[in-house]
């Protein structure tokens, strides 16, 4: 990370990170998780589930982008996606 002016407490600051878990069979393709992810982590799968819906997957290059805000967990109408906190990113 490039920082022009380095805060004094930068060494102790961390950014939370999350790991995404999905249950493809429950997804009905409403896109709530994809459109409202503040970090644009998710995109539609190329595959379809057995009901014919494109479920969410983590976009290429966004593997480290989830900040564990849990919005997708809360807003998913199908209980088909959630995140778990993993080791935070240090600055």
């Amino acid at each position: 990370m490039t920082v022009v002016r380095r805060p004094l407490d930068q060494s102790v600051l961390t950014i939370p990170r999350g790991q995404t878990y999905i249950i493809p069979q429950r997804c009905k393709g409403c896109r709530f998780c994809i459109d409202f992810c503040p970090k644009d982590v998710l995109e539609e799968s190329t595959d379809i589930n057995s009901k014919g819906y494109h479920y969410p997957v983590v976009s290429a290059g966004k593997e480290e982008a989830c900040i564990q805000c849990t919005f997708c967990t809360l807003v998913c109408p199908e209980f088909a996606i959630y995140t778990e906190e993993i080791e935070p990113e240090t600055l």
Binding site: T20, I23, Q25, C30, I86
Partner: peptide, 30 residues
């Protein structure tokens, strides 16, 4: 580097849901 999404069969809210009844009957986008 962490993996991309991990596919699982249970949701962490499942214990407070009757998960054996999911998926529910509500329409996509409800």
């Amino acid at each position: 580097m962490c993996p991309r999404e991990i596919v699982v069969s249970d949701h962490k809210l499942d214990p407070i849901l009757r998960s054996d009844r999911l998926p529910h009957i509500w329409c996509p986008g409800c």
